[in-house]
Design a protein around this nucleic acid. Structure first.
Lengths: 162, 162
DNA sequence: GTCAGTGGGTTTGATTTCCGGACTCACCAA
DNA sequence: TTGGTGAGTCCGGAAATCAAACCCACTGAC
């Protein structure tokens, strides 16, 4: 892992790319916030889960919130940074639905309509996640993209040869 | 990992969630398609990379394309399914840029304007990936979402108790 | 008051995976 | 003949994973 391309994808994966981390965020986002729920729903070994939770709390993606004093009990809640990973989860899910589970999706997400609210017209409907460019509003296509590494010594395809 | 919640996120991660797999797809998408480039740019040990590549080719996310007969040489190219993971990479990158590398992004993606093309008005600009709902066009907010597990025995927060 | 149960972990010891470096093999070029 | 490249494979030690057992503070039922 030394000397690899400097990149926010790698940085993000270093934080949440280990096995189970993203599944933990999925569960928390679904409302399963307690240790034993996380064990059951992710299938992670208890010790691994404990390690992951420690890291996610340190990184401020989750926080421990007490829900009982005596006996001391707490649950894990997503922070703002944690919630902002939800688009990643939705995009992963959309890919898996399309390419791995075509025709029998294990889960469907309902998107509440915004009737009466600013810009809203449609009622409740199924969520279909799509990545667009916030600047121009258009769907993102590979052929419209050009990468510009900002770090000296790197080009799009590798380290500049010295 | 046994008995965990059935879910396309988990299924997708089972395929591309191992260390380096997504970095390989990043590199291929950037145009670094050869074994030694992938070693240098991802930092993966050579044997691990060989294993990952084998899996990605089997899963039809990458394909081996010969670019020389004698000596036999080939490069790895993304298939359609592989390219469709790009939104995941872009979303991960956006998160890392915001939360890990605020103020000095290691890479900037330029988005080609579609002046003159259908719906286009803006010139070239920086890509800012955003997840919206394809049905209604609106940005996705956690509070508008409701998950509906399709698999009997599971609720949003865990297995239905028997 | 004892006994089983629950929530949230930690400990243990065996198995897997990862790692960096050295090695291979086929070919080309000087 | 020597050196270099591309695409791996092989090796032995270090680290991570796993399932299962254990722990501890507390509770509620008998």
């Amino acid at each position: 892992m030394k000397d690899a391309r400097p990149c926010s994808i790698a940085d993000t994966l270093a934080l949440v790319g280990e096995k189970y981390s993203l599944l933990v965020l999925r569960e928390v986002s679904l409302g399963a916030t307690r240790f034993d729920q996380l064990v059951r729903n992710t299938g992670a070994p208890r010790d691994v889960l404990a390690t992951r939770l420690k890291r996610l709390v340190e990184a401020d993606l989750l926080e421990k919130v007490a829900y009982s004093e005596r006996p001391p009990r707490h649950e894990y809640r997503a922070t703002r940074a944690g919630r902002e990973l939800e688009p990643v989860l939705l995009t992963l899910m959309a890919w898996g639905d399309r390419h791995l589970n075509e025709g029998d999706r294990p889960m469907v997400i309902e998107h509440a309509g915004r009737r009466g609210r600013p810009g809203g017209s449609l009622g409740d409907h199924e969520l279909v996640p799509l990545v667009v460019c916030a600047q121009c509003g258009e769907e993102v296509h590979h052929d419209d993209l050009t990468a510009h590494p900002q770090v000296p010594g790197w080009t799009a395809t590798g380290p500049a040869k010295t």
